Amino acid sequence: MEPKHFESLYPGDSRFNEIEKILGFIRNGNSCQLISFPGTGRSNVLNLLSYNRSVREKHLGENQKHLHFAYMDFSEVKNRSLFDVYKFILLSLTDSLLDRGLKEEHDKLHRIFAEHVKYNDDLVFFQGIKEAVNYLALEKKLTIVFLFDKFEKYLPNLTDEFFASLRILRNKAKYRFSTVFSLDRPLEDSLDPLQFVQFYEFLAGNDVFVSVYDVPGINFRRSYFEKKFNKNLSEQDFKNIVELTAGHGRLTRVVLETVFAEQTFPK
């Protein structure tokens, strides 16, 4: 049976350079932008941080237990109100605690959610998010990292109030709060600078570009398909596939799966 999160199976050195750069910004209490073309591995990087203990230990050692990453796919709220986005953020944060085995913390945030959602007001509900972040960061001494995947999907509905809210959370938690924005282009190329001026100082110049080809990740995919289909792929066939796709994550995965399923090898 496969695990709940496939990225938990990847080797610890997957996406090493991208993750090391992200963690460098987080260590300094800053946020950053993870930028690439679609399909090259942005979601993979964020899911590795969220669900792969080996990756976290590779970079952080025992300190990995002091950082908590909450993954959120913003394509799920691309046309939703700010109130809905607030609910999505707190629900995602709450669920992520259970994924890490933090039941006490999960139950506490679940009660905070239930207490504040009944008022059906975004201002009141944001007080619940502040309470949750304060509890985790100041009482439990966790560094909270929001991982906003596919954030470009939400940009048409974005208001400056969103970044003002992030600024408030950062001011409360200080160096124990960061955000990673996954985007197909930098925010400054898509938004009026005034929209995110309140959070700009924590983002300025903090760009991480995703490489097209991640050798450990692609090698893992090959090994995974070889075991799944009980077939071996020759080095020459594997080389042909990588040359065909340039190591592009999504394309290489699709070609590998097709090759193993149909036993048709590219020349």
Rank of each mutant, 00 (worst) to 15 (best):
F163V: 12
F163E: 08
F163W: 10
F163H: 11
F163S: 09
F163T: 10
F163P: 07
A164R: 12
A164Y: 04
A164V: 00
A164N: 09
A164F: 02
A164T: 01
A164S: 08
A164W: 02
S165I: 00
S165C: 02
S165P: 00
S165M: 02
S165A: 10
L166V: 06
L166Q: 05
L166N: 06
L166T: 05
R167Q: 08
R167D: 02
R167P: 03
I168G: 00
I168Q: 06
L169I: 07
L169S: 03
L169M: 03
L169T: 08
R170Y: 12
R170C: 02
R170K: 15
R170N: 10
R170A: 12
N171R: 02
N171Q: 08
N171K: 03
N171S: 05
K172T: 05
K172F: 01
K172W: 00
K172M: 06
K172S: 03
A173T: 01
A173N: 01
A173F: 00
A173P: 01
A173E: 00
A173Y: 01
A173H: 00
A173D: 00
K174T: 09
K174C: 01
K174I: 04
K174A: 08
K174V: 07
K174H: 09
Y175M: 13
Y175S: 13
Y175N: 15
R176D: 05
R176Q: 07
R176N: 10
R176T: 00
F177T: 05
F177C: 05
F177A: 04
F177W: 04
S178R: 09
S178P: 09
T179E: 14
T179D: 12
T179P: 13
T179C: 15
V180D: 14
V180Y: 13
V180M: 15
V180Q: 15
V180S: 14
V180P: 13
V180N: 15
F181V: 10
F181D: 10
F181G: 12
F181K: 12
F181N: 10
F181W: 12
F181M: 12
S182Q: 10
S182G: 15
S182Y: 08
S182A: 15
S182H: 11
L183S: 04
L183P: 07
L183C: 04
L183Y: 01
L183R: 04
D184P: 00
D184G: 02
D184L: 03
R185A: 14
R185Y: 09
R185C: 05
R185S: 14
R185L: 11
R185F: 07
P186N: 12
P186K: 14
P186V: 15
P186Y: 10
P186T: 14
P186G: 12
P186W: 08
P186S: 15
L187G: 03
L187T: 06
L187F: 06
L187Y: 03
L187K: 05
L187C: 05
E188Y: 14
E188R: 14
E188I: 13
E188H: 13
E188D: 14
D189S: 14
D189I: 09
D189R: 14
D189C: 08
S190F: 04
S190L: 12
S190K: 11
S190I: 05
S190N: 09
L191W: 07
L191V: 13
L191M: 11
L191G: 11
L191H: 10
L191Q: 10
L191R: 08
L191Y: 06
D192N: 15
D192W: 02
D192G: 06
P193Y: 08
